[in-house]
């Protein structure tokens, strides 16, 4: 019985250690969004993934992804490619898949964004080389 208790404590401790949450950025009063990665699933499909650490104090009235052509557009001159509108404040992550063609071999930079009544927050950027062409929407 004594050994059983000790082993049970050990197993629980292992389980607890394994389930312990990763550290995240400190809380902010605006939506803090980080781009997590890009999945290039097939020739014509590119999926962007973003993680929202904190939603902030204000309603999110729009969120999505914005992109720029690294060679042609300077930093921050972004074009929205995936606008997904308002969302709940408990959103943890979001994704968007581009299905239109991209220019093969062209280097792009993508950022996730969240928009509130006060500001727009752009995530860190991810640069990737895409296999297909893309029809930009209007500048954000």
């Amino acid at each position: 019985m004594r050994y059983f208790c000790v082993i049970a404590i050990f197993v629980m401790a292992v389980f607890y250690s394994g389930c312990e949450k990763d550290a995240e950025v400190k809380p902010k009063d605006y939506p803090y969004v980080i781009i997590e990665g890009i999945d290039m699933q097939a020739d014509n499909y590119v999926t962007f993934n973003a993680q929202v650490f904190y939603s902030g104090d204000l309603e999110i009235i729009d969120h999505g992804f914005a992109i720029r052509d690294v060679a042609l557009n300077p930093d921050y001159e972004l074009f929205v490619v995936g606008s997904m509108g308002a969302c709940n404040r408990d959103i943890k992550q979001f994704h968007y898949t581009i299905k239109s063609g991209l220019v093969k071999g062209m280097k792009y930079s993508v950022r996730a964004f969240t928009k509130t009544s006060e500001n727009v927050v752009y995530s860190n950027e991810l640069i990737f080389k895409s296999p297909v062409g893309l029809n930009y929407s209007e500048p954000f």
């Binding site: 990763d22 980080i34 921050y76 752009y122 860190n124």
Partner: peptide, 19 residues
């Protein structure tokens, strides 16, 4: 050993995060 460092700058009403 994941290490992430982000800078956050504010230009007009845009908040821009950079790794």
């Amino acid at each position: 050993n994941e290490l992430l460092m982000f800078e956050t700058s504010s230009v007009d009403n845009n908040i821009i995060i950079n790794e």
